[in-house]
Computed example of a mutant assay.
Amino acid sequence: MSVRSEKTIVDIAEELGLSVSTVSRALNDHPNISAKTKEKVRKMARKLGYRPNAMAAGLRNNKSRTIGLIIPRISMFFPAAITTVVQNKLQEYGYHLIICQSNDSLEQEQQLANTLYSARVDGLAVSATLSTTDFSHFDIFKQNNIPVVFFDRTPRDYQAKVIKGDDFLGGFTATQHLIEQGCKDIVHISGPLSCNLYVERLAGYKNALQQHKIPFKKQRVFFHELSRENALATAEKIFAQQPYPDGVFATNDTTAITILEYCRKHNIRVPEDVKIVGYSNDPRTEIVTPSISSVDQFPATMGERVVSALMDLIQTRHPNTYRHPQEIVPIQLVARESSAGSPKKKK
């Protein structure tokens, strides 16, 4: 059985009795080619099953019109929301997106960086893994003048364009809100401090306590990957003995929702006995009962800024030399039922 050969523009030209250059211009929507000829060429291309070779075109003009994106997990609300915006905005600029997830594995992130470099992407956007502290696997992009933009989970001491949320203010605002609602014993559930997000949110939590003259207690702070399973284990520790805390600031919404479910199951009233604030304003926080207060990170704004930065840098002769490497996306607390009113007075 013979293998079907790939059709080329030469085949289209022979079928139509046109020159190869005319077919090429028609497929690329050249203004000097009539609409009638363009339609005739496209119709024959479809009939023959012609597929344009984007890789070959990229080699000719040194542009692939493709951007690489590495995110921790597509299943998480915040990176998923950003991915949607980035893809839609890139399409407006005529670019395609290759979406890769690292599954929070540093080894996988390193492999994906190499793969995307080999795919000749014109630029790269990255939200790093929880454990990425050495970013040298992205050096090859910088050395070859391929723009790299880090967002959300970003390097602390690696020279690069960074777009991040105001995580210190987010941590401060969430904690201050609980204090203003009457809380004086606030648990903080954090991700690992290898990640910039949780370093800054913890600093904001501590600063709010300090400003309100509430002592910081190490035993009220928990560090782990913010999964449902880890949140349940932490809930068991938090409520193992009285006095219970009167506030919980969780640095992601999956954790906040899990704490709420645990409290309901164990007859701990929210918000009367304990108030809860999460982080990211995941849509689930609005539909659970009671609805959960959360810090909105505005993923649409961050996604738009990522694309804008990439497009600016692609047009720059030396894209990885930055005068203004860091952009901060504002946050906003969305107060809901889980933190409403004054806490129950302890007898």
Results as ranks from 00 to 15, higher is better:
92 E>R: 06
92 E>H: 10
93 Y>I: 03
95 Y>H: 07
96 H>N: 15
96 H>E: 05
96 H>D: 14
96 H>C: 08
98 I>R: 05
99 I>M: 12
99 I>V: 10
99 I>E: 04
101 Q>Y: 09
101 Q>P: 14
101 Q>E: 12
102 S>H: 11
103 N>K: 07
103 N>A: 07
103 N>R: 14
104 D>G: 11
104 D>W: 15
104 D>E: 09
104 D>A: 09
105 S>E: 15
105 S>A: 07
106 L>V: 15
107 E>C: 02
107 E>P: 09
108 Q>N: 14
111 Q>S: 09
111 Q>M: 15
112 L>M: 10
113 A>L: 11
113 A>V: 06
114 N>K: 09
117 Y>K: 04
117 Y>M: 10
118 S>F: 11
119 A>S: 11
119 A>P: 02
122 D>R: 06
123 G>W: 00
123 G>D: 03
124 L>D: 02
124 L>Y: 05
125 A>D: 00
125 A>E: 00
126 V>T: 01
126 V>I: 14
126 V>P: 04
127 S>I: 05
129 T>R: 04
130 L>G: 07
132 T>Y: 11
134 D>R: 11
135 F>W: 11
135 F>N: 03
135 F>I: 08
136 S>C: 04
137 H>R: 02
137 H>M: 04
138 F>P: 04
139 D>H: 14
141 F>I: 06
142 K>W: 02
142 K>Y: 05
143 Q>T: 10
143 Q>I: 02
145 N>C: 03
145 N>G: 01
146 I>E: 07
147 P>C: 00
148 V>E: 00
149 V>L: 03
149 V>H: 03
149 V>T: 12
150 F>A: 06
150 F>M: 05
151 F>D: 01
151 F>W: 07
151 F>K: 00
152 D>E: 02
153 R>K: 08
153 R>H: 03
153 R>C: 01
155 P>Y: 04
156 R>W: 01
157 D>G: 02
157 D>P: 06
157 D>Y: 06
158 Y>I: 08
159 Q>E: 08
160 A>Y: 06
162 V>M: 12
162 V>I: 14
163 I>Y: 03
163 I>T: 13
163 I>C: 03
164 K>V: 15
165 G>C: 07
166 D>G: 15
166 D>I: 08
167 D>E: 11
167 D>C: 11
168 F>I: 02
169 L>N: 13
170 G>R: 09
170 G>T: 13
170 G>C: 05
171 G>M: 11
172 F>S: 02
175 T>F: 09
175 T>E: 12
175 T>P: 15
176 Q>C: 03
176 Q>R: 15
177 H>E: 02
177 H>T: 13
178 L>W: 10
178 L>P: 09
178 L>H: 14
178 L>F: 15
179 I>L: 12
180 E>C: 03
181 Q>L: 13
182 G>P: 06
182 G>L: 08
183 C>A: 14
183 C>V: 06
184 K>R: 12
184 K>Q: 13
186 I>L: 09
188 H>L: 15
188 H>R: 07
189 I>E: 04
193 L>W: 07
193 L>D: 12
194 S>V: 10
194 S>L: 08
194 S>F: 05
194 S>Q: 09
195 C>F: 13
196 N>S: 12
197 L>K: 05
197 L>T: 13
198 Y>P: 04
198 Y>F: 11
198 Y>A: 05
200 E>G: 14
200 E>K: 07
201 R>V: 05
201 R>G: 05
202 L>M: 12
203 A>I: 06
204 G>D: 01
204 G>Y: 10
